[in-house]
């Protein structure tokens, strides 16, 4: 296997980790104003992800950073082309991050309610925009021979990509509801359990439409050679089984199935793209592939050695963090 393919796989892994982990963060943020009706309830919800949201977001930074280092042309084309969308996402993420810290620092109910809704917006907007980005990855962008996308923001908000955004929001909301059903107590736990099933139904409907649409509008599932069809089928199975476990009230298993759904869905996208990364709708010859958009072999070699040393360390302390903060939030001791 060459280093280009290895790094394509590693970036797939990083994006998968990011969507699995930040997925439930975004879901919790989206559900916050609805599952928490009183101040203590909302605080409880925030405290479930308070200690871990930041390390989850680091996966996004690492995925972007790995993209920058291994496939700098993709980083350049995508991030410059989607400049305004990224700024919007950035504003959402800033409000979210600050919201976690600021929200409970003043007892004023207007202050707390404002920040709760800013947390909601700051979770909804990035979830939606990431779905839009992935939708556009699947569909392709109008990239010219110089690897530049000139279209601006509006063509990125095409119907297929927007539905991709909706799919991400639905999946992450379900994922977040399962997480809250595992991590909260009392009234909030009951509400989360009820919402989990409704969110699952919404996720199934939205995702089925998205996958069928993708089958006809993109080549992700139909490309000869390696394509996303098998991961798509596995993702569908995982999603259906998740609903079974939600009905049974077994939310640990439901959450696990949600994890698998997101894992297989992400693998579906990247398997369908391989060996391209950014498809050009103008001319397939203009597409950015793992070969024409990558760094030099020397760079890839150095990166591989560094990653082999440090990624296991990072995974180890991430697991430790999760273990330390794994108890249910009871509302008695709330730091956030």
């Amino acid at each position: 296997m060459d280093l280009n393919t290895l790094w394509f796989i590693l970036i797939t892994v990083l994006f998968t980790g990011f969507f699995v982990l930040e997925g439930f963060d975004y879901g919790v943020g989206i559900l916050l104003p609805f599952l928490g009706k009183k101040d203590e309830e909302r605080r409880m919800i925030i405290n479930t992800i308070g200690p871990i949201w930041d390390s989850n977001e680091v996966w996004m930074i690492t995925a972007g950073g790995a993209m920058f280092a291994a496939f700098p042309q993709v980083y350049a084309t995508l991030f410059s082309g989607a400049y305004l969308a990224l700024i919007l996402m950035l504003v959402g993420l800033i409000l979210r991050g600050v919201g976690f810290e600021f929200r409970s620092k003043s007892p004023d109910p207007k202050w707390r309610n404002t920040w709760d809704w800013l947390l909601f917006v700051g979770s909804l907007v990035p979830a939606l925009l990431w779905g839009v980005v992935v939708g556009n990855l699947m569909r392709g962008l109008a990239i010219d021979a110089r690897m530049i996308y000139w279209g601006g923001l509006l063509p990125l908000l095409n119907p297929f990509a927007l539905w991709g955004g909706l799919t991400f929001v639905a999946l992450f909301t379900m994922h977040g509801a399962n997480f809250l059903a595992l991590r909260t107590t009392g009234e909030v736990e009951k509400r989360a359990q009820a919402v989990a099933f409704r969110a699952w139904i919404a996720a199934v409907v939205v995702t089925v439409i998205f996958v069928v649409w993708a089958f006809f509008a993109t080549d992700i599932l139909t490309k000869p050679g390696i394509n996303g069809l098998i991961p798509a089928i596995l993702a569908a199975i995982a999603l259906l089984v998740a609903g079974y476990f939600v009905r049974q009230g077994r939310f640990g298993w439901a959450f696990g199935m949600g994890v698998l759904t997101i894992v297989f869905a992400t693998v579906m996208v990247f398997a369908g793209l391989y060996p391209r990364i950014l498809i050009s709708t103008l001319n397939p010859a203009y597409s950015l592939t793992i070969y024409n958009a990558s760094s030099s072999p020397y760079t890839l070699r150095v990166m591989t050695i560094v990653a082999a040393i440090f990624v296991p360390i990072v995974l180890a302390y991430l697991a430790w963090t999760y273990k330390v903060f794994s108890d249910r939030v009871t509302g008695k001791k709330m730091v956030y």
Binding site: S80, G81, Y83, L84, I87, V91, I148, W150
Partner: peptide, 15 residues
Amino acid sequence: SPNVPASSIVFSLVV
């Protein structure tokens, strides 16, 4: 980046 107009940059800077 030739595809990012100055208006976008100003917008992001102000925001």
